[in-house]
Amino acid sequence: MLAAAHPPAVDLGIALLVQAAMTMPFVVPRPPDLEPATWTAYGLTTLTVIPLIWRRRAPVAVLLAIMATSALYKLAVEGPGQPLPYTGLVIVYTIAALSPPWKRLTTGALLVVAVPVSVWLNTRSARELTFSLFVFAAAYVFGRLTDARQRATRVEAERAAARERARIAREMHDILSHAVSLMVVQAEAGPVAVRAAPERAEAAFDAISATGRDAMAQLRRMLGVLREGDEPGTPDAPRAPQPDLRNLPELVERVRDSGLDITYRTAGGVRALPSATGATVYRIVQEALTNVVKHAGATTAAVRLTHEAGVLEIVVSDDGKGPRRGAPVGSGGHGLVGIRERAAAHGGSAVSGPGPDGRGFEVRVELPVASAVEGAR
């Protein structure tokens, strides 16, 4: 988190940490047969560390600078050695983690030459050569693993964002489609009712108003949650609960006001459900009833919820015209696709097609639910 938010501060901190590690041989007393460490040698050590501040912006240039200053330290002064090539390891890790392939290949080629030369200038031993190659290879491998982990994190974040966009799209579709469908039905019936039964016209206009206000409230709540935290200092959006099973009678009543004779029944006991599952059940019923109002030309409809053996079955049926001739069973627009997606998100299934007697249309959804203690609703 800190590295993503303040990279320059992290790079400065790494440089200071490396400087502290490379200072240790200068403060530890040297054997009497060796000359004491000088400020010149320490200054060259610091000069080797300073380029790490720009390790992200120009990694290959930093590598070349470190190689040059390290060679100068080895050839020009008599200073204490370091137990590990700290600066070289840091820049090799950085290049492996952040740089494109051509920079990594360039780094490999430079190390193939620089490591044996450095060993030859120091101890000329196979042991040091083997150790140096091992630690630089380890730094490179750790850098590649970091890059792979970051790539996987980005891919997962993109997939999560795509799932969230799909979820929001379904919510927006369900809210708007349901509200607009009921308002259109009421508005079309209004002129007829004005002439034949003025009291029914008033009820139709009240239903249009109530449906519009409910849709606006749901959209405002959803958009408020999306905006939450975008602007510093703004108050948090209200987090009203999502609709669930308790709101189904109100939904049915609102659809009944559009002129559709609709019944709502439950069987097997009404159980307490997790909030996400309850919201999914509500949206499935809402979308199925929206399809009835928009497309079925039905006069009656029925909603039935059956909870048994860890499965909640949702059935919405009507006596309308059913699917058009030649259309495959289960085909449909975004509404039926959204119902199937909602069911699949909870490990369930959804099918749709003609009713049991071949008349009308039926949507049947099965959701696995926990066999929780029956709760009063």
Rank of each mutant, 00 (worst) to 15 (best):
V62W: 15
V315E: 03
R265C: 05
R124H: 12
W39G: 02
R377Q: 13
R239V: 14
D33E: 13
T146I: 08
Y264M: 00
S70C: 11
G233Q: 07
V373T: 15
G358V: 05
Q286G: 14
L145T: 12
I314Q: 02
W102N: 02
F142A: 13
S99V: 10
P243W: 10
S258I: 01
V315K: 05
L44M: 13
L133D: 08
G190A: 13
V185G: 01
A204R: 00
V373W: 10
K321H: 10
A267Y: 13
G233H: 08
I66Q: 10
P191R: 12
T306F: 10
A343P: 01
K321V: 11
G320T: 04
A376S: 15
L245Y: 08
E202F: 10
R127D: 01
R57V: 14
P36V: 14
D147K: 14
V112L: 02
A169H: 08
E250V: 04
A126Q: 12
E171L: 09
L64M: 14
V252R: 03
M222Y: 03
L64I: 15
G81L: 11
P274N: 07
D11Y: 10
V92E: 01
R167V: 09
G347R: 00
M222G: 02
Y264G: 02
P83K: 01
L111T: 02
I168P: 05
A15R: 00
G43N: 07
V315A: 02
L251D: 00
A296Y: 05
L16S: 05
G43D: 02
T23W: 11
G360Q: 01
S99M: 09
A343H: 00
T263P: 09
A15P: 00
R149H: 14
D214C: 01
V141R: 03
E287S: 15
G335C: 05
L133P: 12
A207I: 03
R220S: 06
R377K: 10
G338W: 01
L367N: 01
V113E: 07
L260F: 01
P32I: 06
L260E: 01
G212M: 00
R220K: 11
P328T: 11
A41K: 04
P323W: 08
H178T: 13
T38H: 00
W120F: 15
G143Q: 03
R271A: 07
P241V: 07
V311M: 09
W39Y: 09
D214V: 00
A76N: 07
T300K: 07
W39H: 05
R246S: 09
I66R: 03
R55F: 13
M67E: 13
P7I: 10
L182G: 04
E78T: 15
M216N: 11
L219K: 00
A372L: 12
P191I: 10
P80R: 08
E250A: 12
V270F: 07
V270Q: 04
P241G: 10
L98P: 00
E156T: 12
R324C: 04
Q286F: 07
I14F: 06
R154F: 09
Y93S: 03
E164V: 10
V180F: 09
V337N: 09
L289Y: 08
